[in-house]
Amino acid sequence: MFQKVLTSAVFAGFGAGLLAALLQFTFVQPVLLRAELFESGALMHFGADGTPVPELTFTVDARRDGLSILFTALIYTGYAMVLSAAMAFAARRGHAINLRSGLLWGIAGFVAVQLAPAFSLPPELPGSAAAEVGARQVWWSATIVATAVALGLIAFGRNWIAILIAAALTLAPHLVGAPHTADYIGPVPPELAGLFAARALGVGLMAWSILGALIGLIWSREAEP
């Protein structure tokens, strides 16, 4: 089983990571690059006249884009190792692992790792005002752990108490509240910020779905040694 965990994690993680990078370049990066023009002060959007949407010329920054591809593949391989390990424990308890169940695992991973923290700490466009990074990282990590445990209780719990605990764990981080700034001081247009958050979450859902399905597929194809 260890062999299955490692093989499915590495191949699915790297594959899903490369696809995630492609999706990010297509749908997220253009929003991010426009936002940087406001973050750097090259453009300002305050004022009655508005600011024309800046045209982007298609350029490839080999170093920046190469590092982005590398780190996306790396992060998704990390996600895959955690996800396939969790799936292994389910498999040990007799749950089938295949493309279909893998897809559900992937979607659950997206909910825990991207959607849940984004509910109170939306994906940040460069230039967004935000509280101190350490505090946000702690809240972000705790929210993911709480949501992942909640999803586990919903999926594998045997009674209504498990569901109640799951509901409490899901809501608690948001009732406590994420660290936020005292003022709204972001220099970036809300049109860009909204689009960025939606795109980041959408690409996340696609990539996590692919990730889970790939782990399930590779897992079910790999023979038990």
Partner: peptide
């Protein structure tokens, strides 16, 4: 990790995948 070389290298990915970045 907040080491500046690592932060710069992973910057776009952190934003795009919803990590707290700066």
């Amino acid at each position: 990790a907040q080491a500046s070389a690592l932060h710069d290298a992973a910057h776009d990915v952190r934003h795009a995948t919803g990590f707290p970045c700066h």
